[in-house]
Design a protein around this nucleic acid. Structure first.
Lengths: 339, 339
DNA sequence: CTGAAAGCGCTTACAG
DNA sequence: CTGAAAGCGCTTACAG
């Protein structure tokens, strides 16, 4: 690799001059500029980005921390979010460093990443990384609601409480008085808000939501999200007497549908099944078409990135941004029938 | 930002010792290790990744160069490819730097990227970047067939010729003797192979493909891919007498379908429309269901990354890898009818 | 308009 | 097992 000294030597100028020819930070005479450029081209010189970053303390890349599932499949939600983030980065001349590497407990393993800011997807409850980035003094935007802690980061999120309240009211309006809620993992901060929203819907209608009707996904217990939906319905349908199921994601809903089929239930007449997180591909392939909530992940991504840039430029004011969601009614929820 | 010197000073050891506590490259006594770690934690020290990279001449990130369309939408093909690349990176402990920034003509603007290797998606004919990376001495894998040039890079690709030959034969077997081919941009290297494959199909059946039946996408002429399909069919249907259309992508096909509808054609009876590049979402939403070719973009991505790692470790032998593709027959192609 | 030298935050051969 | 010092490839205040 040819470096700045090689070029300086060959062109008979100082490193400073070569540097300035490339960075244009101060004017260099036209003959010199030309000579340097010619020699650089001949030698195949390109400024080393890492060295520039070290010197400038600025990398022009932002980081995206995102878990990857064990089977390697990336949920459509995540791909859309990435796409949104990329759009915004592209506009600003930034690049995106995607990091799917699992969180290291070994303090010896975590470094100050080569980024100017980071977007953190799906923080866990009490996620250590939030504080870490604040320590490192690197701007952070969280996608999804962060847990309360000493230092509350900026974040963008859907209004999970409101969304669940609406979904709950919709089902109640169809006559469902008892609903199984297949919530996400307890570790996910969204799970609390969603439960609260559902409670609110019940309260509002003068009903109450019994705690045993809320289940949580557990990584250790289920191989896949679909299995979570499948087993949960199979295991509870006899004891509990719900007429509707709210699944955390489309994948969970698919499992629930499979279970309902095996139980010989007619859908949606004998069991209504709806999902948060509308993946239009999946939702439409399923029969009956899955009533679900569109979360606009691309907007989440775009806004998260825009927000982060604002913070990096110190022009941000608000502590958070809320992205709309929308109930998409298809065919998988019907009027409740007595069992 | 606290640095290694701060920690060394506070712990009363040399920088070398702190460095080795973190890198474990040589053994440090347990008491010292513990003391250093404690102080590092207290001070909030994390090794600066950029500085480490500069020193080690290794970044543990690989780059993905990918264009982004003007409307910001990311094709499903690309998201799946990214997902494949990410899976492989994750396995190997690498991170992924996605770069959607447009190619700079200004030599002053391009730098030696902070990556250990790069994957280049969709190179243009005679893409300067290919030679550039070879100059910079950074390992490169191209996705899509690179143009012949001095230096031929490693690449992974579908067999575009074979795929088109099969698709062509399929349509010919349905009685289509004259087919409009909405090829991709001339700049894309795949376009030549695909045309050749189609020619081969015709030759094989004792027919010949007239040149005016091949069109090329031009960025300056059409706002979107869908518009390319739409206008092309609208503009040519009267003069040329094809009974089938092969569209470069699903998006192009959708435009073609719209045009056919406006022309009052009954689909697929009066016009068969098929697409390369099967995006199952799109293909199924369209009526009639779009017969198209599945290119397995996730496999392309995974293999490209795996290939790149092999090259970086100097264990690769073969110059290229070919990924299967598969014709997915739905309803959008039918037996040819005389006009 | 140009140069010599210190500095960015690490690693590592060399010496002990 | 530990340290002092040079080096990775840039940038930039200072001096001219």
């Amino acid at each position: 690799m040819v470096n700045i000294s090689d070029v300086a030597r060959a062109a008979n100028v100082s490193k400073a001059t070569v540097s300035n020819v490339f960075s244009k930070k101060r004017p260099i005479g036209p003959e010199v500029t030309e000579r340097v450029l010619a020699i650089a081209k001949e030698l195949g010189y390109y400024p080393n980005h890492v060295a520039v970053s070290l010197s400038l303390k600025k990398t022009m890349v932002i980081g995206l921390k995102m878990p990857i599932s064990s089977d390697g499949e990336m949920p459509v939600f995540n791909t859309k979010m990435i796409s949104g983030v990329m759009q915004e980065c592209s506009k600003r001349g930034y690049r995106l460093l995607i990091d799917t590497l699992p969180e290291q407990d070994d303090p010896t393993k975590s470094t100050a990443d080569p980024v100017d800011g980071v977007i953190l997807l799906n923080p866990r409850a009490n996620d250590v990384r939030v504080e870490r980035y604040s320590q490192m003094n690197i701007p952070l935007v969280v996608v999804g609601k962060p847990n309360e802690q000493k230092y509350t980061p900026y974040y963008v999120d859907n209004d999970n409480m409101l969304m669940m309240e609406q979904l709950g009211k919709y089902l109640i309006s169809l006559g469902h008085k008892s609903i199984l809620f297949l919530n996400s993992s307890k570790e996910m901060t969204v799970s609390q808000d969603r439960m609260e929203g559902l409670n609110e819907a019940f309260r509002h209608e003068g009903l109450s939501f019994e705690q045993e009707y809320e289940l949580h996904y557990e990584r250790a217990k289920f191989r896949t999200l679909s299995e979570y939906g499948y087993r949960s319905v199979l295991d509870t349908f006899e004891q509990l007497d719900y007429t509707a199921v709210i699944a955390d994601t489309d994948y969970v809903a698919i499992g629930a549908i499979r279970a309902a089929r095996e139980l010989g239930l007619k859908l949606p007449e004998q069991l209504s099944i709806v999902a948060l997180n509308n993946d239009s591909t999946l939702a439409q392939e399923v029969t009956p078409g899955l009533t679900s909530v569109e979360l606009y992940p691309d907007r989440l991504g775009r806004q998260a990135a825009a927000f982060l840039f604002d913070i990096m430029e110190r022009v941000s004011s608000k502590p958070k941004m809320i992205i709309d969601s929308k109930l998409i009614i298809r065919e998988s929820a019907a009027r409740a029938q007595p069992k």
